[in-house]
Design a protein around this nucleic acid. Structure first.
Length: 558
RNA sequence: UGGGCCGUCGCCAAGUCGGUAAGGCACCGGAUUUUGAUUCCGGCAUCCCUAGGUUCGAGUCCUAGCGGCCCAGCCA
């Protein structure tokens, strides 16, 4: 059991056993993203796992950019990655590492393999190499260049490094076994020629190490004890181990695999997320509907909620899809406990309290949070004219509807009980206002006649409120599995994933909201100022997530 | 059909020496409630992919099947 009372997951158990057996004296992990896109919810789990493991077992975790492919990478991403990791609440050991920091060492070790007769320069084209590789069920055959002499390989590799060959002309390969049942062992490529300048090393190199060759050795250099990756790399582990065994590396790291996080109704593939951004289906990598860390941050999710979600999802080797409801639960749980309450009318309907003196105003106080007294109270101006939500009044309704209908009373949250009289309409029949009466002496007490209202609704004074814009988000995809094979994920996009409401009316205290503050707009959900579009003149609130709603919408009358 | 990994409630997931199925989410009640929220209390797998077998006893061991995911980039 961990200190949280949760049973240990298989990786925690491995780390604990390695510590207890003395196999290692300190855990060292790393989070190794490739800076070729923004981090998403799946990376959040890897971050939580790697940093959390180090944290919980007294070790440390490095942040390493796996930057072995300059053609796809960019400095923009290395910066975004650092922001995201820190926002999630983690700090890497020392400075940010780059696989490119080790290019010199990796090159030396490549020479070592060549001298040991374990690597050779192969002139096969990419197509030829594929043919020689064989298939899943048939062994491959040796490259005609496989038996070049050490001297020749050394000379050729030097020419590769010096830029004397065109891209694709040749590659350095490990000499392992072309008939291995594991295709990764059929003489994998160690170095390929790429005449691209690198975001970290500039034009120093024109040959770049492959992931397989660079990753394990980088782990060894950094003293990583547990190199955690996702399931699809399990087949690479024999190769990972091969390099560690062949080379004079300073440590012997081990690779472990866990299943990647999948969430229904969302896509978590960098390629697809990039397409949504590039083709303007969303408003950038940090669009609040995106499952990117940047998007979730802008949406208003909290780092804690994300971490809790990862823990709830668990760490195993089972391929699975977690319901998005688990994520939503994690967010509501955190926000319910920690967000101050406020009232904001999203779709205003003016109500005139015909029996309330025209010149009179009052100010009511309301608790900052119903279950916490450490949050400051609020002041709520009240007057003859107020706004309530259009959905809280109906001219007629079935018996399940508990809110306002003509002749029925309802409690105004933190204020009086009122009773609806009649709807005022324009000449096209649209309701433009509501006449109602307030019941005296019902602030903080029930009506004297004993007829208690069945519902409580939120409101804001017409003479004292702030105007704002509210953005309601729904899931980006209408399909439970937009990522599933055979379908075009773009066709699964939910056309109603964003609803922008203008002219919303919030209580005065909301004018003090900062970019960090999340509020519960009572009866509506949790909201935060949008970091991109909000301004002092015009506040724009994002709905992080709605309140849980157990009222059966299907049972509502028209 | 070569290799690797996996199959416990609708979704995730405990179950470590075989001893008679944790927990979370969802869902369904019911209580409290000036948020149809929160909180609270109760319900929710005679069954662990299937079939045999071993055993006093198997989700846990054995055998044979079935199903799913991953691998043939000079991507990671």
């Amino acid at each position: 059991m961990s200190e949280t009372g949760r049973p240990l997951n298989f990786l925690e158990r491995i780390v604990q056993e390695d510590l207890e057996s003395g196999k290692i004296t300190r855990v060292k992990t790393r989070f190794p993203p490739e800076p070729n896109g923004y981090l998403h919810i799946g990376h959040a789990k890897s971050i939580w796992l790697n940093f959390g493991l180090a944290q919980n077992y007294g070790g440390e975790c490095n942040l390493r950019m796996d930057d072995t492919n300059p053609a796809k990478e960019d400095e923009e991403y290395v910066e975004a990655i650092q922001r995201d990791v820190q926002w999630l609440g983690y700090q890497w050991a020392g400075k940010v590492r780059y696989a490119s920091d080790y290019f010199d060492q990796l090159y030396e070790w490549a020479l070592y393999l060549i001298r040991a007769g374990k690597a050779y320069v192969c002139d096969l084209s990419a197509d030829e190499m594929r043919e020689y590789r064989g298939t899943l069920t048939e062994a491959g055959k040796n490259s005609p260049y496989r038996e070049r002499s050490v001297e020749e390989n050394l000379a050729l590799f030097e020419k590769m490094r010096a830029g004397e060959f065109e891209e694709g002309k040749c590659a350095l390969r490990a000499k392992i076994d072309m008939s291995a049942p594991n295709i990764n062992l059929r003489d994998p490529v160690l170095y390929r020629i790429k005449k691209a300048s690198h975001h970290q090393t500039g034009d120093k190199w024109c040959i770049y190490p492959s992931y397989d060759y660079a990753h394990g050795q980088s782990d060894a250099i950094e003293g990583i004890t547990h190199s955690i990756c996702t399931l699809e790399f399990a087949d690479h582990r024999p190769l990972y181990d091969w390099f560690i065994n062949q080379l004079p590396v300073p440590a012997e790291p081990h690779q472990y695999e866990f299943s990647r996080l999948n969430v229904n109704y969302t896509v978590t593939s960098k390629r697809k997320l990039k397409q949504l951004v590039d083709e303007n289906y969303v408003d950038g990598w940090d669009d609040p509907r995106m499952p990117t860390i940047a998007g979730m941050r802008r949406r208003g999710f909290t780092p804690k909620a994300l971490r809790d979600f990862c823990e709830m999802a668990g760490v195993t080797k089972t391929d699975g899809v977690v319901e998005i409801g688990v994520l939503e639960h994690a967010i509501r749980e955190d926000l319910n406990a920690n967000s101050p309450r406020a009232m904001c009318v999203l779709r205003p309907l003016k109500v005139i309290l015909t029996n309330y003196p025209a010149e009179k105003t009052e100010v009511f106080t309301a608790p900052g949070h119903p279950q916490r007294d450490d949050m400051p109270e609020r002041q709520l101006p009240f007057g003859r004219e107020i706004y309530i939500d259009q959905e809280d009044f109906r001219e007629s309704a079935n018996k399940q509807y508990k809110r306002l209908i003509p002749g029925r009373r309802v409690r105004l949250r933190n204020a009086y009980v009122i009773e609806a009289q009649e709807a005022i309409k324009d000449n096209t029949g649209n309701i433009i206002a509501l006449h109602a009466t307030y019941i005296e002496d019902t602030h903080g007490k029930d009506p004297a006649d004993g007829i208690k209202p069945k519902a409580v609704i939120h409101w804001v004074a017409a003479h004292a409120h702030i105007d704002c814009e509210v953005r309601l988000y729904d899931r980006l995809f209408a399909d439970v599995a937009p990522d599933a094979g055979g379908k075009n994920f773009l066709e699964c996009i939910n056309p109603n994933s964003l609803e922008i409401l203008q002219g919303c009316k919030g209580e005065m205290g909301l004018s003090k909201a900062t970019l960090e503050d999340r509020y519960q707009f009572e009866r509506e959900g949790y909201f935060i100022l949008d970091a991109r579009y909000s301004s002092v003149d015009k506040p724009v609130f994002n709905r992080v997530i709605g309140l849980r709603d157990t009222w059966d919408k299907a049972a509502q009358p028209d």
